[in-house]
């Protein structure tokens, strides 16, 4: 078994004041003295290739109690153009100007004051008396580099500026791995290759506030943005022609928004009997000071909620195996007003 190789991890920086000057190493004392508002990092010329290393996952049984095995192998993270991990190619995950960041920031909504702050600004819908932790993947203001903008322009519409944007757009990440499910009667294989993936714009915000019982509860707001130019899923170990047997998905795009600040927080919890619970709560008029017993005010509150809550979107450009296409798939403007998911035993 080989040890996983990492190459080219070169940068870890505090970014509260991004500088264009040369970077100088900080010693432990300097680092300890810093009271950074946030921490940013970037992986420059990054490549991960597990080669023939195999991670064996155990603890999986069949219905008769016979233990089976999942072998996870051929994990790679490389730059676009790696040809399914066979052509070592480095990639920048984040950059000095656009790092992944962890911040502590203050909410932007003045619940007791100006209503215009409730839905505007970077930290809308979270009270300005709250300090929240924010984890951001890269953020780009450039129209060509901002993936959400690029997808809106080039995939979901046919804007003439698309060609010039595509010409200057950075390469994405290639990610792949192989799973072998060793079963009593044979093996199943899943060989997944993702080409040209981007996740800039993805973020998670966490904050805490007392609930009605006086308990401090952690809330979240999760925005997931993922775009891949191509995903190939093979189900053969060998002896198959990928061109005719693999599932090929073009332009896979997820833009999922879970939660809208304190008006509709995302809550993760565990029940007393050990099951997990995800809840996207019913919209709460409380933070905005709306009287829940006032029908007209509540109608106005929901109108406001529907107009301002970020919607979710899913787009798949094409689903194909060999010459057979199953076409596009589109889910546009999804609005979840309530969701509660609880795990339960499968009998």
């Amino acid at each position: 078994m080989r040890i996983i190789d990492f190459t080219g991890i070169t940068a870890l920086l505090v970014f509260s004041a991004i500088s264009y000057a040369d970077l100088a190493r900080m010693d432990d004392k300097q680092l300890g003295d810093s009271t950074a508002a946030g921490l940013g990092f970037a992986l420059d010329d990054f490549m991960l290739n597990s080669d023939s290393a195999v991670l064996k996952v155990t603890g999986i049984n069949d219905s008769t109690g016979t233990e089976i095995e999942v072998d996870w192998s051929e994990l790679y993270i490389m730059g676009e153009g790696s040809e399914s991990g066979t052509n070592p190619t480095t990639v920048d995950i984040g950059s000095y100007l656009h790092p992944w960041t962890i911040n502590t920031v203050r909410g932007g909504a003045d619940w007791d004051g100006d209503p215009s702050t409730h839905h505007s600004g970077e930290y809308a819908a979270i009270g300005d008396d709250i300090a929240l932790i924010e984890i951001n993947m890269e953020r780009y203001t450039s129209a060509a580099q901002n993936t959400k903008n690029y997808v809106d322009t080039c995939l979901l519409s046919s804007d003439p500026s698309c060609a010039s944007m595509a010409a200057i757009r950075r390469g994405g990440i290639d990610i792949g791995s192989k799973f072998e499910f060793v079963l009593p009667n044979g093996s199943d294989f899943l060989d997944i290759d993702i080409r040209g993936a981007y996740m800039d714009g993805t973020s998670m915000r966490l904050w805490s506030r007392d609930n009605v019982d006086g308990d401090s509860v952690l809330y979240a707001d999760l925005d997931i943005l993922f775009y891949a130019k191509e995903i190939d899923i093979g189900v053969c170990d060998s002896g198959c022609n990928p061109a005719t047997s693999s599932l090929n998905i073009d332009n896979f795009y997820l833009d999922i928004n879970f939660g809208y600040g304190e008006i509709q927080p995302f809550i993760i919890d565990v029940t007393s009997d050990g099951h997990f619970e995800f809840e996207l709560a019913k919209p709460d008029p409380g933070p905005q000071g709306v009287n829940p017993n006032d029908s007209d005010a509540m109608i106005a509150f929901y109108d406001d909620f529907y107009a301002n809550t970020p919607k979710s979107n899913v787009y798949i450009g094409n689903i194909q195996v060999g010459n057979n296409t199953a076409g596009e798939a589109i889910f546009r403007d999804m609005s979840i007003q309530y969701l509660k998911v609880t795990s339960q035993d499968l009998n």
Binding site: K311, I330, R332, D333, M334, Q337, Y338, T342, S343, Q344
Partner: peptide
């Protein structure tokens, strides 16, 4: 198979599957 129970109220403006 996923051992889950889910309850939801969700609206989607447009769903298209199998567009070819």
């Amino acid at each position: 198979n996923l051992g889950l129970k889910a309850e939801t109220l969700v609206n989607i403006a447009e769903v298209k599957l199998g567009k070819f």
